[in-house]
Design a protein around this nucleic acid. Sequence first.
DNA 1: TGCAAATGTTAGTTGTATCTAACTTTATTT
DNA 2: AAATAAAGTTAGATACAACTAACATTTGCA
Lengths: 226, 226
Amino acid sequence: MDLTLTPSTEDYLKAIYEISQEKRVVRIKDLADKLKVKMSSVANAVKQLANKELIVHEHYGYIELTDKGFEVGKSLYERHLVLYKFLTQILQVEPGIASKDACSIEHYLHKETVERIVKLLDFISTAPNSTPQWMIKFKKFLETGVSECRYAKTLDRLEVGTKAKIKSIRLESTIKKRLMDMGVIKGETIKLTKKAPLGDPIEIEVKGYKLSLRKKDAKQIEIEEV
Amino acid sequence: MDLTLTPSTEDYLKAIYEISQEKRVVRIKDLADKLKVKMSSVANAVKQLANKELIVHEHYGYIELTDKGFEVGKSLYERHLVLYKFLTQILQVEPGIASKDACSIEHYLHKETVERIVKLLDFISTAPNSTPQWMIKFKKFLETGVSECRYAKTLDRLEVGTKAKIKSIRLESTIKKRLMDMGVIKGETIKLTKKAPLGDPIEIEVKGYKLSLRKKDAKQIEIEEV
DNA sequence: TGCAAATGTTAGTTGTATCTAACTTTATTT
DNA sequence: AAATAAAGTTAGATACAACTAACATTTGCA
């Protein structure tokens, strides 16, 4: 019996588990409302889950979890909770967004990754003082610390004699090909060797070669100082 | 012009950006290899991106990013990097898994969530001592701290006179309905008031009512001490 | 230069998950 | 008890993103 579930069927099973914990019975309509889909879509999914023997569903009747279904549904629900807690408690994401994000990503994360998150949550809750110092600092940092969206520095603004690493190149293909043949590639380290009076052209050194560039082209090369 | 991209087309655009930074030209074959799909699938996606004017592609020719395409592609790539760094540097996930997980979840996270992650990374890199104390502790915790997968405690093992919160219920529907009508629902607080000699039956109090339960049924009710 | 290999295109198929619309069964109301 | 409303089912349509297979073009080598 193949118990593999698609993201969509996982959603249905998780929802069945949740409703079964809140209401006396689970109906197609409840699922349609909860998942914001039409009843016919639910009917389809329910058939699949029944084929996998995770639920039992009789015509025009209620939906019930089998033992296996209960177990799987519960673990799906718990995985969701872990992600939700992580997003809200650690990353300080708003509940509404956290809930949506948890829903979308829960299907895709490896078991190992979720394990790490569980451990991080554990680590924080078992810290000597309930909220660890760093988290308090992080919260403050969130309020004040503008995550500097620094200007991307471009090659034309590099100073003569200094080195930098290439971060990205945005040039018309003929020029780009020529440069790439000389070794001007993402990650490569280059040195600005000379600048003409008005900064045009400039001369750079890469892999021992020296080559000359127009300022307008140099402007299209993003760098990162080293 | 609708610039909305599906997860799949986002992948293609990101890959085009990446290849354009590594190779002199971008071809259908390169994309097929990188994304592990057939060339015909790439052809399809390329047509869509061209329709949105994010790339230019001439018959049997190379693929080139437009200005807009470069910008979007680059930001997709950077988002991926942020997630990858987060997974490896903070959660200590293995590179291989981190890379796959980043690929899968990057399409689904809200801008705000990614922003938080950027800030957390920033916060850590700007900490006075390069690796903050708590991260060192967390790494140790990962090695030793067994994230106790404690036995789920069930109602039958609660002590007389103590209270607990209901965490989950797994019972045949007729009994479950009866209990739920009395207020035995997930999240509700209950008190164990009496236990017969061999622990069967037990009596609990919920919302003022007292009710009696078989041990075998109580065993199916998971609780959480309060 | 010419032919084979590599690369690219197109048309049509499959699988998944949604939908609409018509219909059936069950529940509720008068 | 009949009429109406609510819930559930089924068949067929649509959209997406992959696929296969047959065909077209370009490249590279003998």
